[in-house]
Design a binder for these strands. Sequence first.
DNA 1: TCCTTAATGAAACATTGTTGCATTTAACTT
DNA 2: AAGTTAAATGCAACAATGTTTCATTAAGGA
Lengths: 139, 139
Amino acid sequence: MSVDDLLRNHGLKKTTTRKQVLDIYLNTDHALAVADVEEALGDGVDRVTLYRTMGTFEEKGLLHKVYDDDGKLKFSLCSSDCSSHQHHDNHLHFHCRKCGKTTCIENVAVPEVEGLEGFDIQDVYMVANGTCKDCIQAA
Amino acid sequence: MSVDDLLRNHGLKKTTTRKQVLDIYLNTDHALAVADVEEALGDGVDRVTLYRTMGTFEEKGLLHKVYDDDGKLKFSLCSSDCSSHQHHDNHLHFHCRKCGKTTCIENVAVPEVEGLEGFDIQDVYMVANGTCKDCIQAA
DNA sequence: TCCTTAATGAAACATTGTTGCATTTAACTT
DNA sequence: AAGTTAAATGCAACAATGTTTCATTAAGGA
């Protein structure tokens, strides 16, 4: 789907910044922090705008939050069935301690949690840490 | 085990601050951030010292890191089989969105990750978000 | 008790994220 | 195509979290 369509489908105004940010995510296979996007855009866009843009994208279901090993917040593109206030990012995330990249493993689902009586579980977040394919092969 | 024993067993000097911090963790059932410990100690101890103390405790296997829903770093007491550079906190963590407390669910193990070919998984981190027992009963 | 090393306190700095307000721009109206 | 309005942006200031350096203090062994 095109950047323009994505924005329209999520009820968002088509601004220059939003198109640029979305384009970056569409062309990246791993999660990006605000600072990463800022760097990719090479100045020109205010930090605050990026925080707001990415916050809006998250609210509207375009991006979902990903936390790596060190609690660093990154964002990753949502699959198409995410919408406002209803994320479906029930997949595993992998954080590579070598290259630092955090990747969505869409084809590995987060398992159901068993044996937690008396709690109301709304969602479960799961990250595996280790060495990714690319870094293993490069070694 | 007593505070003094715990410190000695992990090769740490018995200082006033360390004893106080450890005591707080032994008497709390949920994870605490540096700011929480600072508040519990009611001034008197420098923030920097707490960062260092808790960092040391983590290194030596007395505390393990816990990240809640919002990426906020907290620490939780390790079970007795943790040691330097070899944590065994392979249990589920629960973060309550009502009261904000993050708790270790020691009796629910993190399930094995299946189907990740080509990756080297060192450890897996898992947090369930929702409403905890106490908050459900209080409602 | 003395001595050495580790732990602490204080100040300064770095990074990350937020808030208020003035300005600009997208998208709708006419 | 120009005008209008609400949303998006830029800027400045602030807040929270964490780190680094260095002088001082305290712990634990000799």
